[in-house]
Simulated scan of single mutants.
Amino acid sequence: MISDKAVEIKRKLKIEPIKGSYNSYAVHEKEKRDWSGNIYLTCLVAILAIAFFT
């Protein structure tokens, strides 16, 4: 369903001029890395290591 409310999306963009062209730019979106999966995996490995060595 389409809403009439405008949603503001905050994105970090890196805009660089393209060499050898006039008034042309390359737009790169900076992405944040999602560390939550790595943190859960590390905790699981630590719990399994403690259980194995005790």
Rank of each mutant, 00 (worst) to 15 (best):
M1W: 07
I2S: 09
S3D: 13
S3L: 10
S3P: 04
K5W: 06
A6F: 14
A6C: 15
A6K: 15
V7A: 03
V7S: 06
E8S: 03
E8C: 02
I9Q: 04
K10L: 03
R11P: 00
R11Q: 04
R11Y: 02
K12T: 08
L13D: 00
L13E: 00
L13W: 04
L13C: 01
K14G: 00
K14D: 00
I15G: 00
I15S: 01
E16F: 05
P17N: 04
P17K: 11
I18Y: 01
K19G: 05
G20A: 01
G20V: 00
S21V: 09
S21M: 12
S21N: 11
Y22R: 11
N23T: 07
N23V: 03
S24G: 04
A26Y: 14
A26S: 15
V27G: 00
H28K: 15
H28A: 11
E29W: 06
E29R: 11
E29H: 09
E29V: 05
K30R: 14
E31A: 07
E31C: 06
K32T: 09
K32Y: 07
R33Y: 12
W35Q: 12
I39H: 08
I39D: 01
Y40M: 09
L41M: 10
T42C: 12
L44Q: 08
L44T: 09
L44Y: 09
V45G: 12
A46W: 15
I47N: 03
I47G: 00
A49C: 14
A49N: 10
A49D: 04
A49H: 10
I50W: 12
I50K: 06
A51R: 14
A51E: 12
F52V: 14
T54A: 13
